[in-house]
Every structure is written in C-alpha cells, then in structure tokens.
Design a protein around this nucleic acid. Structure first.
Lengths: 248, 248
DNA sequence: GGTTCAGTGTCAACATCGTAGGTCTACACT
DNA sequence: AGTGTAGACCTACGATGTTGACACTGAACC
C-alpha cells in the first residue's frame, strides 16, 4: 500500500525522532515543537518519544547535537588558520541552513555543564584542541583560541540572523526595514544608515572578522601564521559585495 | 496596616510589572516566568498584565529593554577605544548580574526586525554610531564596528556563562566539572585541560579579546588608535589572573 | 445631577502543553 | 509452554497563554 509522505516505517529510532524534530523546527520554529506535534509527525502516540529521550529538554539537546555533528574539524590540517576559516564558513552555512536552531545552539549549553553535554557537541571542541596543539599551541592557549573563536562565531551568526526585514518585497530600504516607524529625531544616524543596513553581506562580514581575529590570535600567541596573508587590505567605505550563499 | 513584602501599592505600572518579571527571572530563570506567577508576585489577577503589555512576548521584550537600558554609551568620549572598552565591561557586568536574562538578550532580537525593537534597545546602537562617526568613521564603517563589537560581546558573554560547574564545592577540578563522566579515550585533550578549564577568568578573557578586536579594527579602518597602546604583550601560557568581579 | 466614557481589575472558559501511571501486544529466550 | 522485555498506546493531571464578557472607578460633558 502507498505510504503517506512521512511514512510510519517500522520501528521508531532516536535518529528518526530527531530528524522529525529538526524538520518541525526548521519549518515552524523551536516554539512550535511540542511532543504531541512531534508524535503526530511520526504518526505515533506522543508517549513513544519518552522511550527514546527522557524528556523534551533532552530532545532539544539531541537536535542541537545532530546539527552540530554536521560540523567537522580536520585536526590533521597543517595550516591551522585555513582550517579555522573553513570551520567558520561551515558553521555559518549550518546556521543559515537551520536558522531556527540557532537559538537552541547558543542557549542550550547554558543549561548543561560542559562535560555532561552530548558527545557530538564536544567533538568539534576536542578536534579543535587537537588541531591547535599540533600547530604548536600550549593546552591553555588552545582552549583560549577555542573560546575566542566560537564566541566570535556565535556572535556573528546571531548578528546575521537578526538582519531580518519587515517587508522583503518592498524596494525602498526604509520601508523594507520598517524604519519609517522609529522616531526620526532620536535616531538620526540609524535612519541615515538604512541603505547600508539593507545591503548587509554576511559572508563578507564573516571574512573580515576572521581576518581581524586570526591575525590577532597569531600575534598574541606568537604562532606561525601559516599560509598566505589573509589580505587585510582591499576594502573601503561601502565595501564590495562578495558572492553570497543565500538570497535575502 | 502593615503590607506584605511585595506590597500592592496602588496602581500597577508597566515599570512595576517589568521589575517584578525581572526579579522572577533572576531568581528562577526565564522558563519559570508565567503570567500567573507574575500576577501572584504583584498580588493581582494575572489578567491585569494584559493591560500593560499585549502578551507574554512583549513582556519579555520589555525585560530585555529594561536591562539594556542600564547600558550607557557616552558618544562624547574623545577616546573611542577607551569608550568601547568601558561599554564592554559594563555589558559583561550586566550579564553577570542577570545571567538568566542573557538567553533573552541574545534570542529575543531574532524575533523582531531591528527597527521595531523597543527604543531602549536601539539607544546603545545609535550612541555607538555617534561615538564612532565623531571619531572619524564613515557611516557604514561605524555600522560594521557596531556589529563586530556586539557580536564579540554576545559571544563572550555566552561563553562565560557556559562555564558552569556541576559540583562547585568539590576541590578536584575533574569532579567539579563533571569530567569524570566523559569517555576518556575519545576526549583526551579536553580531559587533560580540566585544570585550565577550572580557573577560567572571564574578565581577563574579555580584555584579551578586546585587545585583539580593537587593534584589528583600528588597523582595518585606518583610524587613529587614541590612548595608550592596549598592551598586547604580557601574557604567557597559564595567563596571570586579573582581579575578577564575581566569585564563582 | 445625571450620563457617558475610557481605563482598570476580575472571573470563567478554552485549547494546548509536558509528562506520570498503567495496560496491551509481540517477540526472544529458556 | 512459560516468562521476560521492549515498544507502543491511552487516560489523566496540573499548568500554561490568551479570549471574551462583566463590574467598578473616576473624569468629562451636557
């Protein structure tokens, strides 16, 4: 017999549950994920979920883990700066692919002590430490780099996802950003920058941040900055757009 | 007659509501804030709240606004780097004073287009733009600095708040961090760094990040780096502890 | 003085949520 | 044949955000 799209193929596995949960979150946001809805998506009784996770919080952690598991760090890369850049780009791509997961990504760890987090979440950390110590970093320094690096990444991703527009079809920047509503007298500079706000280029912003970060790190840690120089120059006021992955 | 501690003094104002909400969040976390509990804290019927806010989401935004309103940027400061540093330290202090608000702080803006955010939230942005343009920045560059700066700040704060411990009374670092639980074979480096993890110094980390960021920014924007050099040197593997505000 | 009106507080009700407890079915192994 | 076990299901409880109707107050107006 023909199965409905989200077919009930035999057993329910943890992976199936998490995949369905991710799908719901991607479509309708994290707030829309309820045990009942998730059960319905799997065409099962909601209570089945508790066989595969001790509660909703664990499910959310699981979703975070599956997403984060798609991020891989190659500890064997001889050029640590290049590897950092690659990871950063992957991370951004992941965030853009699952924007509704980002709040969980930055928020869930606050509820769980580091060492009790799901292993998939710790993998990138361990690999990054590996990469850096191979490059000559001391342990504590590697830890420091990890923190600065992911701190920066999370900050960037949060920023980029905030650049939402009220009415994307509108051509006028002021209207698109909903800026006509804010009191002109109190925020003159902000209003004047509507155009600049409108053509925000996340990819370029990330690269520039990486330039600053990596050169800064290399200097502070007195590590060899392998590979060619990252090209700090080449930019002016308006900043040339780089090709962007997403269309916004 | 003697009033109970959280007295019902006359009218209920928006400020009173938000203050009570903040109190609950500070004490029991954002998840513990419900309309009914908030109503009980004010000794009023929960429905009263809807007279002062259109819904729970608006209340949360209000809490974010009141917290963020405590952050002030002085646009007249002639030394922009010093002002940035001051703002960064204030922001960190705010986050440490209200750790349970931080998830809201980084998460709520994702739900609201920039221009429709409460004015209190936009104030620091406008003031920062002011500060930077006075220092000779172009508009778009100022915007860029703002983004990199707050991206970094949010990232740092999120990082610092994650460094929670499982059993704060334990003297052994491994136990305090709950590290004895994670599979030794898979995370050797991480386990080896338990000590380094345990004496994380948020204030020092912030300063080092600021060093990197500000020098990087000054270089990229070819702005005068006013004030004395930020002191990029003076650090080694273990990193000397600076005096810290909080006790953890 | 009487009437209207907007603001404020109260109450009951609804749909939805997470999850504790118990039960039924089917298969694995002795 | 009997027994154990794991997966799935159902019911039910308490809590949540929010709607709509209703009562009270004080000021504004005729």
């Amino acid at each position: 017999m023909p199965q409905p799209p989200t077919a009930r193929d035999g057993k329910v596995t943890r992976e199936l549950v998490l995949a369905a949960a991710l799908e719901i979150i991607d479509r309708d946001g994290a707030g829309a994920l309820s045990m009942r809805r998730l059960g319905a998506a799997l065409e099962r009784d909601p209570m089945v979920l508790y066989r595969h996770a001790p509660g909703k919080a664990a499910l959310l952690d699981g979703v975070v883990e599956t997403v984060l598991a798609q991020l891989s760090v190659d500890p064997a890369d001889p050029d640590w700066t290049a590897q950092l850049r690659a990871v950063a780009r992957d991370y951004r791509a992941l965030a853009l692919a699952h924007p509704n997961v980002v709040p969980l990504l930055v928020t869930r760890p606050l509820a769980t002590p580091l060492a009790l987090r799901p292993p998939g979440t710790l993998r990138p950390l361990e690999d990054l430490l590996d990469l850096l110590t191979r490059a000559g970093c001391s342990g504590p320094d590697a830890l420091h780099v990890y923190r600065v690096f992911f701190g920066f990444l999370n900050g960037h991703v949060l920023n980029e996802l905030q650049e939402l527009v009220e009415n994307p079809d509108e051509t006028d920047d002021l209207l698109r950003l909903g800026m006509h509503r804010l009191p002109l007298r109190e925020f003159p500079l902000l209003r004047g920058l509507a155009h600049a706000l409108a053509d925000y280029d996340g990819a370029a912003e990330l690269e520039r941040g990486l330039d600053i970060l990596i050169t800064g790190l290399a200097a502070t840690l007195s590590l060899p900055e392998t590979g060619r120089s990252p090209g700090l120059a080449a930019r002016n006021a308006s900043g040339a757009q780089t090709d962007d992955v997403d269309k916004r």
